[in-house]
Simulated assay, not measured.
Amino acid sequence: MGRMGRPTVDVVLTDDERETLQRWAKRRTSSQALALRCRIVLACGDGASNTQVGKELGVHPVTVAKWRKRFAADRLEGLVDEPRPGALRTVSDERVEDVIVKTLESTPAGATHWSTRSMAKATGLSQSTVSRIWRTFGLKPHMVDTFKLSTDPQFIDKVRDIVGLYLAPPEHALVLCVDEKSQIQALDRSAPVLPMMPGMPERRTHDYLRGGTTTLFAALNVATGEVIGQLHRRHRAAEFKKFLARIDKEVPEGLEVHLICDNYATHKTPAIQRWLAAHPRFHMHFTPTYSSWLNQVERWFGLLTERQIRRGVHKSVQTLERDIRAWIKLWNEDPRPFTWVKSADEILERLTGYLQRIKDSGH
């Protein structure tokens, strides 16, 4: 006799319910949890079993059974999270949806983005209510981020090449992320820095005295996190050639050297090409244009800036260079490699999503 399990609740959808579920599942303003529940119910409504739905959507069959049962009992209202103990809601779902739609799909007259005050005036809600709705749905109209799309015709090939070096580096080879942090300024404050005290942060003047600049050439070992660094007062192909010679000296002779660089002109001059031809174990891999995020040494430069340069006080270039060398030495005593987790396909798929959003925006 076959094993008896729990009986499956049949899900029969009306046309209105199916339309609403499809709209909630596709709309960008829906939370990810609600969108998943809608897809579960839609699949159940098509006659799929809990196991089939779970396999298709990547969730456990028990989760499918839970939302199948909730929908059968309470219909669309059953897909919304149960209210927590407290006062009854005074703002309906329709008014919440109105705030979200206005925030995402319109702008107020005479302004580029909504504020809590302007949204409250437009919807008849209080500023605190608008603020709570925005926090709940992760909306931040006052913030803006920037991006730059690469125009490199070899973008896909270069992404696959570099990500391949990160995820599957060649044997008997060293992968180094190389770049220059140029024009690092030695800045001294116009008055002494006042140290931090209980209840009071460190204080410093907003103006400063310039003491000159330096350039840091750095090569980050992808496998170990160790950094080879060299400082120069100028930033030319001649200095980059000296840095390549430094790398050649420090890397054991039996290893091939793969360098990940950007498209800066100093990396491609005839002098550099001649040097590379004379050192065949060196292989250059260039990031696509406007894609410095592919070079892991940029992340390391960010740490150097955050922990040493930004709040440092340097009366001269010499003291600045001394502190940078000391920081590199300290880093190499306990290096920490950056773990790359995204495959090339995942990166390209996400970029495709951005491009689709741009296309759908109507601009």
Rank of each mutant, 00 (worst) to 15 (best):
residue 142 H to E: 01
residue 116 T to R: 02
residue 173 A to Q: 02
residue 146 T to W: 06
residue 177 C to E: 11
residue 146 T to K: 07
residue 216 L to Y: 09
residue 147 F to P: 01
residue 148 K to L: 12
residue 129 T to S: 13
residue 189 R to H: 15
residue 202 E to G: 11
residue 185 Q to F: 03
residue 162 I to Y: 01
residue 206 H to M: 09
residue 129 T to Y: 09
residue 216 L to F: 12
residue 203 R to C: 10
residue 221 N to R: 04
residue 206 H to V: 11
residue 180 E to K: 07
residue 198 P to E: 15
residue 198 P to K: 01
residue 152 D to M: 11
residue 218 A to D: 15
residue 155 F to N: 03
residue 222 V to T: 10
residue 207 D to W: 14
residue 182 S to H: 11
residue 191 A to S: 05
residue 173 A to H: 01
residue 194 L to N: 14
residue 156 I to A: 08
residue 194 L to K: 15
residue 166 Y to D: 00
residue 228 I to G: 01
residue 215 T to M: 04
residue 138 G to A: 01
residue 200 M to P: 02
residue 226 E to M: 13
residue 123 T to I: 00
residue 130 V to K: 01
residue 206 H to G: 13
residue 206 H to F: 10
residue 215 T to V: 05
residue 174 L to A: 12
residue 155 F to V: 05
residue 145 D to A: 02
residue 151 T to N: 08
residue 217 F to G: 06
residue 126 S to F: 13
residue 148 K to C: 09
residue 211 G to K: 12
residue 156 I to Y: 09
residue 211 G to F: 09
residue 145 D to K: 00
residue 223 A to Y: 08
residue 147 F to S: 03
residue 167 L to Q: 04
residue 203 R to G: 08
residue 120 A to L: 08
residue 201 P to C: 01
residue 131 S to P: 14
residue 216 L to A: 06
residue 153 P to K: 05
residue 169 P to D: 11
residue 145 D to M: 02
residue 209 L to V: 15
residue 210 R to G: 08
residue 141 P to Q: 09
residue 174 L to T: 07
residue 228 I to Q: 00
